[in-house]
Design a protein around this nucleic acid. Structure first.
Length: 243
DNA sequence: AATGGGACCAACCGCGGTTCA
DNA sequence: GTGAACCGCGGTTGGTCCCAT
């Protein structure tokens, strides 16, 4: 037989708010059998829900490691910082905030932070002052196409290169000025090994090592591995520089 | 007390990438 | 190799609560 069996019988599934009994059943089942296999879970747990709905309920609401309650000031700042780097990549942002879900952060962003930034005169999409005129010499560079191919950083993420001009901080209390650059490398180290220069391709400098757009691999295997491994730490996702 | 509007948030929808038969 | 289903994600919706009038 080709393919798989259907996900669930949509005609016999509940929708809408979860009841206490459904929650209890789901919790009990996952405690006994663990997460995963969402497709077969509803039937096994005696729930008239589709697996997708069960997964969502567990991840966003029932998981025991969830941190409930208000966001702290530190969390606020971290979300703003991560959003300025990642755009609407809520799952990636949630990955840096233990106990918070992507859905929770997304809702919090849309209801609180967005308004907060707007009230401060900051565009929540670009993280730049709303009053800032678009300079004639500004070159807008969009990574949407490249990044979409990688399935990592999607629409809404881009930056403006302003011909290397350094702008004055307009919101000294909130440093949102962002710069993307390859990780620092000691020039002496860089020029070592047969005098070869180690440079990162565009993909690796974005932290997208091993991507099909990676041109490092066209270099020697040594330089490829070294440059890409340093590239993987870009944005501090391994080093924890954002912490 | 009634009601209208805004805020909040849980849940749904649809899509793209991945996995499996 | 192919197509169907799974999985996870971001965007959106709709119900509920709260507050001002």
């Amino acid at each position: 037989m080709m393919g798989r069996s259907p996900c669930c019988e949509k005609a016999h599934t509940n929708k809408g708010a979860w009841t206490k009994e459904e929650d209890d059943r789901l919790i009990a089942h996952i405690r006994a059998h663990g997460e995963g296999c969402w497709r077969s879970l509803p039937k096994a747990a005696g729930l008239l829900r589709c697996g997708k709905s069960c997964r969502l309920r567990w991840i966003n609401y029932l998981r025991p490691d969830l941190k409930r309650g208000n966001f702290t000031e530190e969390e606020d700042q971290l979300i703003i910082k991560l959003h300025s780097l990642l755009g609407n990549k809520w799952s990636l942002i949630a990955g840096r905030l233990p106990g918070r879900t992507d859905n929770e952060i997304k809702n919090y962003w849309n209801t609180h932070i967005r308004r907060q930034l707007l009230s401060r005169g900051i565009d929540p999409a670009s993280h730049r002052p709303l009053s800032e005129p678009v300079a004639a010499d500004v070159t807008t560079i969009s990574f949407a196409a490249v990044v979409k191919e990688e399935g990592m950083i999607g629409g809404g993420f881009g930056f403006k290169e302003e011909n290397h001009q350094i702008k004055e901080e307009r919101c000294p209390d909130l440093n949102l000025e962002l710069r993307i650059s390859p990780p620092y490398q000691d020039p002496s180290e860089t020029l070592k090994s047969e005098g070869r220069r180690t440079t990162l391709c565009f993909s690796c400098s974005l932290g997208l090592q091993n991507s099909k757009n990676c041109s490092c691999s066209s270099n020697s295997s040594n330089s490829s591995s070294s440059s890409c491994s340093s590239g993987s730490d870009f944005l501090g996702f391994k080093s924890g520089v954002l912490d």
